[in-house]
Nucleic acid binder design. Structure first.
Lengths: 175, 175
DNA sequence: CATAAATAGTATGAGCTCGGATTATCCGAG
DNA sequence: CTCGGATAATCCGAGCTCATACTATTTATG
């Protein structure tokens, strides 16, 4: 009823029991150097999310926690709205995030003395210690990710990404 | 009282009141060429998501719809699990996504004749028409995003991203 | 000063993601 | 052939994101 080639097809498309041969169909569909740029960027971001997020996880935090703490380490006197815009994060999402970080005593919110509507989140001593530990591992993970590139190539990669981003202010949390 | 002339102005310029200067602190925090790689990748992916997603939106679909349809256009005979792995998409999420696309008659699920547990999703004629239209706009948007790079630089960018991705199989839907 | 419009932050609710349980089916050992 | 374990898809529930509504406060205008 069926051709004998079915065996090879089945082997190729089979799950991954023990021997784990490479499935040609999957590889053909997965990301490759000719894939669309949107897809490559998404996958690469996903990859870095996994490795850097694992580093944050080792200290009981998430990648988003680390990013927010790093932002608060670099700048001060931002309101929540300004922080959210700089991070491309929805204000409601950021409020919930700051609630979590505040409950863990990693940040604190003070009222802006010049505008009593606004709150100025600030990183605490404890928060900065956690941030510093994670930053070490995160930088190592980033260096490892581009170890195949030399300094000039790495710099070009960054500038190319920066060029794609431009001055856009896109929303959307994948982080 | 009511200011008859300014009213329309204000409504039109909502969110950016007249005379508001640019906040220097915000600009300083945003992504720059020296930002961390993880952050740049995330922002660049976010940017492409916005522009390509807008293209899909013009045809009543989402970026994820387009990606799934493109995958089904490129390959055949994948089960849902295999498709999900290739796309880095959770099996539950993919089931829901295929439900939506199926309801719109853009894909159909047939039982794998060799394994009655498995379903083989396939793109329909109608689905491929939508896919083709979106693909045109998407390619144009991608070219526009890297218009500052020449062919060699663009190729290098892709290969660098491909190198970062490696053979990892990360989960996580930002798409 | 009085008052209307705009804005920062928070609360609420719809819809989504994803880990784990469930069902139907396949496969290998006896 | 039968039976126990593995696997594909689906179902269910906790937790999350984000649009919208709401409150407190500031700013503009006469």
């Amino acid at each position: 009823m069926t051709t004998e080639t079915k065996d090879t097809e089945r082997v190729a498309a089979a799950g991954k029991p023990a021997g784990t041969p490479i499935e040609p169909s999957r590889v053909a569909l997965g990301p490759g150097p000719d894939s669309e740029l949107t897809w490559l960027l998404h996958r690469a971001a996903q990859r870095m999310h996994a490795v850097v997020g694992a580093e944050a996880e080792r200290h009981g935090l998430t990648l988003r926690d680390h990013i927010v703490l790093s932002a608060l380490h670099k700048t001060t006197d931002l309101t929540q709205i300004e922080l959210g815009q700089a991070l491309g994060m929805d204000k409601t999402t950021l409020t919930a995030e700051l609630d979590r970080l505040g409950k863990a005593s990693l940040v604190e919110r003070r009222v802006d003395p010049r505008d009593r509507r606004a709150r100025i989140p600030a990183i605490t001593e404890k928060g900065d210690e956690a941030r510093a530990k994670i930053a070490d591992g995160a930088h190592a993970a980033e260096r490892a990710a581009v170890r195949a590139l030399d300094a000039a190539q790495s710099a070009f990669l960054r500038s190319a990404l920066y060029g794609i981003i431009g001055d856009a202010d896109d929303p959307g949390s994948c982080i």
